[in-house]
Design a protein around this nucleic acid. Sequence first.
DNA 1: TGTACATCAGTGAACGCGCGTTCACTGATGTAC
DNA 2: TGTACATCAGTGAACGCGCGTTCACTGATGTAC
Lengths: 228, 228
Amino acid sequence: MPRSSPKTSSAAPAPRQPRGPGRPPKEGSDQRTAVLDAARLVFARDGFAGTSLRAIAQTAHVSAALPAYYFVDKKGLLTAVLEECVAPLVQSLHVTVQAAAPEPVAMLEAFIHAYTRTAARNPWLPQLIVREVLSEQGVLRDVFAQRFAKGMTAMLSDLIRRGQSSGALRKDLDPAHVVMSLIALSVFPFIARPLVSGALGIQVDESRADALARHHLSLLLGGIREEA
Amino acid sequence: MPRSSPKTSSAAPAPRQPRGPGRPPKEGSDQRTAVLDAARLVFARDGFAGTSLRAIAQTAHVSAALPAYYFVDKKGLLTAVLEECVAPLVQSLHVTVQAAAPEPVAMLEAFIHAYTRTAARNPWLPQLIVREVLSEQGVLRDVFAQRFAKGMTAMLSDLIRRGQSSGALRKDLDPAHVVMSLIALSVFPFIARPLVSGALGIQVDESRADALARHHLSLLLGGIREEA
DNA sequence: TGTACATCAGTGAACGCGCGTTCACTGATGTAC
DNA sequence: TGTACATCAGTGAACGCGCGTTCACTGATGTAC
């Protein structure tokens, strides 16, 4: 049993190596995936510090030693969740927005709709990011916050600036502040679900995702003040 | 040594009781306060699960047994933080907004400015609330989320509705959704500080609080679209 | 005033428990010949 | 094909550690008389 993650290195489908002796990884084995999925959910629900590897193992119906077997340690498991669960979603969000180019307002609409749908389908995503990546003492703050945040915010900032240049968007607002507000509106409903569904009575689920996105766009573009 | 918080029950200045025998609480003793302040900071920074009572004791420069002595247990300490640190700030926010009544837009401005100033002066506040009270498995979610959230959201919803009736605010937006967005804009910069100051380059501190509030108001009232 | 005593705030050391992590081991699956 | 062996995925039980919590105790501060 190798100490450095055995299957991780061979995670990419081996391109027809000489195939040394020994048993190859069983095709149908999905225990690694089971651990990863359980970790995603439990980390998001209970936080990194509040989660035990035993709880993850139990959720995944595997032995308590398996998480360490595949992911070396607890931090490695969180890293893997970000690499293998978060990264693809962020990447796909990027692609969707770029597909709506070049019209800035259209890209903005694409971002808000795509993000809202993604978050509604994967409620663990915003919770995990905010709690463990964006917060002050987040375990992987510097490593990953930048990795995902830099690209996304750069794209959005550029988008806003182009909108201002073309005369579609107000020029008296600071682009960075607008990006911050844009993210704030999109993200908040998913990280404060109990408040939103409890005190405000707003359902935040997949079926309401588009209605939510439409509200955000309407408010963001037009503001709440009645035009004189 | 009484098991049920010794000083907590006599925290309110005793109104000239018969004063039974024994030593009264030393006037200058502030160890209880020291623990409470340390807890406020460390809970917000590391999360409830990620914080040890020993860490709090060390921060407060008291013995490891003191937190339990004054606050019974870890949950009791968090409860006390909410009761004695959060509640007064929320209360004062209420008062400030009501003082701006009855004009809805003026109250909105008062809320955003007052909240932003409060959060900038007490960065632990939004972090603590979001992480430990509003999140799915928050330790005191049901007890306290409602206690603070219900009143605040009710006031804000009412305010938006009155603004719509008076013709000052757009009637095609759902009041509950507007309240959600209002809170989202105000709260987000403080819970995602590393993102906001890192990737977006926006400083979130006391000196910038008013500028931040002005941006939120401008965006919220007028939207980002250039008027035709 | 002095003396005996009650009560206080606060502590040091220990408790059992659950945690992350380790490791010798197992039995199924493969290869070599 | 059969047999000996290598390697795999995965586990059960144990490790030391830090945690929340407990409790007998201390010495300063007060009261009673």
